[in-house]
Amino acid sequence: MKKFFINKINKLIILTLFLLLGFGHLAHASNLKIEASKNSFDMEEEFYVDFSLDTEGLSVNGVEGSIKFNNENLSLVRIEEGKSVVSLWVEKPEITAENTIKFSGIIPNGFDGVIDPFNGSYKKPGLLFRAIFKGLKESSSAISAFPINTTLNDGMGTLVQTTSFDLSINITNNTNSHIIKNTSDTPPELDFQIIQNSDLYAGKYVLIFQAKDKEAGIASVKIKEGGRKWVEIESPYLLKDQSRHNSISILTTNYGGISIIKNIDGIPYKIFNKFNLLLLLGVIGLFILLRKIYKIKHDK
């Protein structure tokens, strides 16, 4: 009887080993780490929560997901993505109407962990974004992520299982007015182009841009076309003035309150185009003709 059970156990072990050898790579997931400086905060006290990606050695190039929290206990003050390893956001981390932080972005050419050049053998998780919260009332609640998807940097966009553990936050009944300020000494950067492409707004003039601030993060990008008002925009942006004769100003502001303005000159009106030239010649010809008629009549 004992031998029978031992045989069964051995078969189970062999099966487990084969499964691990054959399918172990499927279980090889990346992790979304949700971390705060501590777990207990006072009411009205601002604190940050970091959302970082630990790829566990895999090279990934895309990440998307949702973060949930209880808005009766916690209030989201702002989200900072300036120090993120994500270079291009498809959906910048923002709170939705359903009280969820949604995000989606890519890391061109892949990411498998941040290298510390003084300790090259170890790679650290990469920060996706930092959220600043404030406690509203004495409570205990969780900040959780679901679902989180990452894609392998394999040229096929293979989706990888990504796990995460909830972060528990306790809010005490004490009050603390600690505020986390967002300071920056450097101005934001803005790369932009006006393009026309048949697959983008049916070939109309479109402004595309990438605003960056590695310190504080980008608060807003606004545009002013000619005499129109400043409006906040996202890339790609369909220009209101399709004639392109009006000058364009783009105002980029970081969370530290520092702004830069970039100007694009309008296309000048062409005075001597074909039509205007013909019109001018016609007017001159008419003038000469009328003068001649006048002279003939006057001589008579």
């Binding site: 190039n61 895309g62 890519i106 061109p108 050419n109 892949g110 998807n149 392998l152 940097n153 096929m156």
Partner: peptide, 20 residues
């Protein structure tokens, strides 16, 4: 639609990011 699945999703952006 690089992944030919009838929609633009993270998978398409990932293929683009690989060739960036």
């Amino acid at each position: 639609d690089l992944s030919s699945d009838g929609k633009i999703s993270l998978v398409d952006f990932s293929i683009m990011a690989f060739n960036w």
